[in-house]
């Protein structure tokens, strides 16, 4: 595989909150069309790592590059902070709590980024947003406000919002953890179809079925480090480390 196939590369990421070191030197690369599931117990640092990738948390040290835009972090300060917004606009993000803008309708939520970050004309952004909402099955709800939508619908709007930026990769931070069990399926279905489309995705999740059946690579976090990684087949049928064996046996 050639070097240009790598979309996102994180190198030796450390992150501390005060005296607590949450990430202890994590390196990960995501190649084009790869779907990476990050598993781990709560407190293992997996969400923090994901949030570091688009600088919602600034790592203490390490480097992150997305399609050639590289940010080097030394002593908690990015050396070239101007690349941060560029990286963010190339990475989509789907939050656990959806974080839809409550003062805007579904379609306005999807249009906002293209108009104000990518400076796309309004009518084009609207057309695009409509087709994306259709894509996630919410065309008939596009003029509703977030408070008028169910959790699953809100999360699907959030996915459309991320897609509208035409990201190189999409980060999912436990996208189904805040949902009622009966609503999980509709969100996973959309995610599955994105994977089938060949989107590059990094997913922090507790959904074992998704990790096993949809992802191309599984990464297991333990105590701030990557304890084990591999294809779903290798990982689930033949776990090598004791911690991961324990983790999957609990489920």
């Amino acid at each position: 595989m050639s070097k240009t196939d790598v979309i996102l590369e994180a190198n030796d990421i450390y992150k501390s909150f005060g005296n607590v070191e949450v990430l202890k030197g994590i390196s990960l690369e995501a190649k084009n069309r790869e779907v990476i599931s990050i598993l781990g117990a709560s407190g293992s640092g997996k969400s923090t790592f994901l949030r570091c990738l688009n600088f919602l948390e600034i790592p203490t040290s390490g480097t992150i590059s997305v399609h050639g835009e590289l940010v080097d972090i030394v002593n908690g300060k990015p050396v070239n902070p101007k690349h941060i917004e560029a990286i963010r606009s190339r990475l989509g993000m789907v939050f656990q709590q959806f974080n839809l803008w409550t003062h805007r309708t579904a379609i306005e939520n999807v249009m906002e980024g293209p108009i104000y970050v990518k400076k796309i004309p309004k009518n084009l952004a609207r057309e695009k947003a409509e087709s994306l909402l259709e894509r996630v099955g919410l065309k008939d709800r596009m003029h509703m406000y977030p408070s008028q939508l169910s959790g699953g619908q809100q999360q699907r709007v959030a996915i459309a919002r991320a897609l509208a930026m035409e990201p190189d990769a999409i980060l999912f931070d436990e996208p189904t953890s805040a949902l009622d069990p009966e609503l999980v399926g509709e969100v996973l279905k959309v995610m599955q179809s994105l994977a089938a489309e060949g989107r590059t995705m990094i997913v922090v999740t507790h959904e074992m079925a998704f990790a096993r059946d949809v992802s191309s690579k599984v990464v297991f976090f333990h105590a701030g480090k990557i304890a084990e990684q591999g294809t779903p087949d290798e990982m689930f049928n033949n776990p090598k480390t004791e911690v991961f064996q324990k983790f999957i046996s609990k489920i």
Partner: peptide, 12 residues
């Protein structure tokens, strides 16, 4: 979270 969502799409 509202602000984070803005940061995540790369808003200044």
């Amino acid at each position: 979270g509202q602000v984070e969502a803005g940061r995540a799409v790369g808003m200044s």
